[in-house]
């Protein structure tokens, strides 16, 4: 179930992606493909364009040039920014998930944890209260949130718990593709470690494809199979994660790798 299939059609194909903000380049000439079960890390420093790429690929931001092609469950290739907004929102609801850096951006803070996790199910037609609640409970356990907190609102959760709740909400409806924007950013180190481990386990167990944006190379090494290194809106290097980090070719990648502090 979690073996990467050879010779399958890619789940996501990004071609010549470009986004400009006035005269400033957000990202340009970005090409990559993603297969089921793969995790692609996008690393770079602030201003590298990695978040722009993520938002364009996830359908949240319209690019100025290029295409994002997604192969849906029927095998049909859909141009993410060419389809109508209702279709795109439907894809975003059923096939994709987005994990924000700040958990509050991905949760409804005024509503209970159980309702937060149950909402994606209700959004695709689940109408049996006990089943929805049971599924929400399963996912709270999977993300190591105490089951007794199911009726508490996320405002009463710690930062790490909020992030884990966001992940549960993102994954409950069984998406095929997950986009993560600095999923461990802003959290305490010990909390980060626990969260990374959880993400790694879930991605493997569920055979998810994922695009993970991070500035933290250790996170990239732990989570991703392949890496895209970005600088000033361009991809400067790409390859297997361990190869890019252990044998960086591009001067900027070498700089990044050598700059990481080793405690």
């Amino acid at each position: 179930m979690n073996a990467v299939q050879d010779d399958d059609a890619p789940l996501l194909a990004v071609e010549g992606l470009e986004k400009r903000y006035g005269r400033r380049v957000g990202c340009t000439q970005v090409d990559f493909r993603l297969w089921p079960g793969e995790v692609l890390g996008v690393v770079g420093e602030s201003g590298s364009g990695k978040t722009t790429v993520l938002n364009c690929v996830a359908g949240r931001l319209a690019p100025d040039a290029g295409r994002v092609l997604y192969t849906d469950r029927t095998g049909a290739a859909r141009d993410v920014h060419g389809v109508s907004e209702p279709e795109r929102r439907m894809l975003m609801r059923t096939d994709w998930a987005f994990v924000h850096q700040n958990a509050r951006d991905g949760l409804r803070m005024a509503v209970s944890a159980g309702a937060n996790v149950g909402e994606p199910l209700m959004a695709v037609g689940a109408r049996h209260y006990a089943d929805i609640r049971a599924a929400a409970g399963d996912w709270l356990e999977k993300t190591e949130i105490e089951l007794g907190r199911i009726d508490d609102p996320p405002t009463t959760f710690s930062g790490g718990m909020q992030q884990r709740l966001q992940i549960a909400r993102a994954l409950v409806a069984g998406p095929r593709l997950v986009f993560m924007d600095e999923p461990t950013g802003g959290l305490d180190v010990s909390v980060q470690a626990r969260l990374l481990d959880l993400l790694r386990g879930l991605v493997t167990e569920l055979g998810l494809a994922a695009v993970v944006v991070t500035h933290d190379l250790a996170v990239a090494r732990l989570l991703s199979h392949r890496l895209l290194v970005m600088r000033q809106g361009r991809v400067v290097e790409t390859g297997l994660t361990d190869q890019v980090l252990d044998d960086p070719q591009h001067p900027y990648t070498q700089l990044l790798v050598s700059s990481v502090l080793q405690p």
Binding site: A3, V4, W35, H225, R226, G239, L240, Q243
Partner: peptide, 9 residues
């Protein structure tokens, strides 16, 4: 890279 991963697996 995917081919390398498959070989490693």
């Amino acid at each position: 890279p995917r081919a390398v991963l498959a070989v490693r697996r």
